[in-house]
Simulated assay, not measured.
Amino acid sequence: MTNRVEQILGRLANTYPNASTDLKYRTPFELLVAVILSAQSTDAQVNKITAKLFERYNTPEAMAALTPDELAEHIKGCGLFRNKSKFLVATSRLLVENYHGEIPQNRDELEKLPGVGRKTANVVLGVAFGHQTFPVDTHVQRLAHRLGLASGKTPEQVEKELCGKIPPELWQPCHHWLIQHGRKVCDARKPRCCQCPLVDLCPTAPKKEEISCTSF
């Protein structure tokens, strides 16, 4: 790590010492469902939906018994719910048929499941199973660009750059730090640079005398 990267990580760790996923889950399957639902939706909204959904349908077997239309009625509070209901029913059936109802701990196998892309696979592998992965969502990609940690145009390119600069044991923590910082301080439209502990390390921040909570 360069000294600047080390300072950024140190300050993020001090600012968000308990950072973790905001999605509520008890099993790897519940996490997988929650992450699929979180696309085009907030974690808070997903948690409202899964609080009721998981009372009845919290296993691949239970969800596989539903039709997409039946499941859609339970998740219609989140964006793209009709597509997600199709993905979740198809994925649940594949898990029952091919994996004895267990979530595979292999990226290639996970990405074969409907509705599961690289980011979702990385979240499940890292959060549920403790693998060293670096999921890149919109918050992570935005902050990586603003902080000069990556310049890639795609999440995969950004992931590769971040993994090349940050030790593997910090990939998962850093993922959570960046998400928390993106939600609480480094907003997409109006970053609050006056509240940012990284402002002196940020190459895209305004000059000190121009910094205000309406900067950018």
Rank of each mutant, 00 (worst) to 15 (best):
T2K: 10
E6A: 14
E6N: 15
Q7N: 14
I8H: 03
L9C: 13
L9I: 15
Y16L: 10
P17G: 07
S20L: 06
T21I: 11
D22K: 07
L23V: 03
L23Y: 06
K24W: 01
Y25D: 07
T27E: 04
P28L: 08
F29I: 00
L31Y: 06
L31A: 09
V35D: 08
L37F: 09
A39P: 09
Q40N: 13
S41A: 15
T42I: 12
A44S: 11
N47I: 10
N47T: 06
I49P: 02
E55G: 10
N58Q: 04
N58P: 00
T59H: 00
E61C: 01
A62Y: 00
A62I: 00
L71R: 06
G79I: 13
L80Q: 09
N83Q: 15
N83T: 15
N83C: 03
K84F: 08
K84Y: 08
F87D: 00
L88I: 15
A90Y: 03
T91D: 02
S92V: 06
V96D: 01
V96T: 11
E97D: 12
I103D: 07
Q105L: 05
N106E: 15
D108A: 15
E109K: 12
L110Y: 09
L110T: 08
L110F: 10
E111W: 01
E111S: 07
K112A: 12
L113V: 06
L113R: 04
L113M: 09
P114E: 01
P114Q: 02
G115E: 02
G115K: 10
G115I: 10
V116P: 04
R118A: 13
R118T: 13
A121N: 10
L125W: 07
L125V: 12
F129D: 11
F129N: 08
G130N: 05
G130T: 05
H131E: 15
V136D: 06
T138R: 14
H139F: 03
V140P: 06
A144Y: 01
H145T: 09
H145C: 11
L147A: 04
G148E: 12
L149D: 15
A150P: 13
A150K: 10
S151P: 02
K153I: 00
T154W: 01
E156K: 00
Q157W: 04
V158D: 11
E159S: 13
E161G: 08
E161P: 07
P167T: 14
L170N: 14
H176D: 04
I179D: 05
Q180H: 14
G182N: 09
R183I: 11
V185G: 09
A188S: 15
A188K: 12
A188D: 05
K190V: 14
C193N: 05
C194Q: 13
Q195T: 02
V199F: 08
D200E: 15
D200L: 08
C202G: 04
C202I: 06
P203Y: 02
P203Q: 02
A205D: 14
P206A: 04
K208E: 14
I211P: 02
I211T: 03
I211R: 11
C213Y: 14
T214I: 13
T214K: 15
F216D: 12
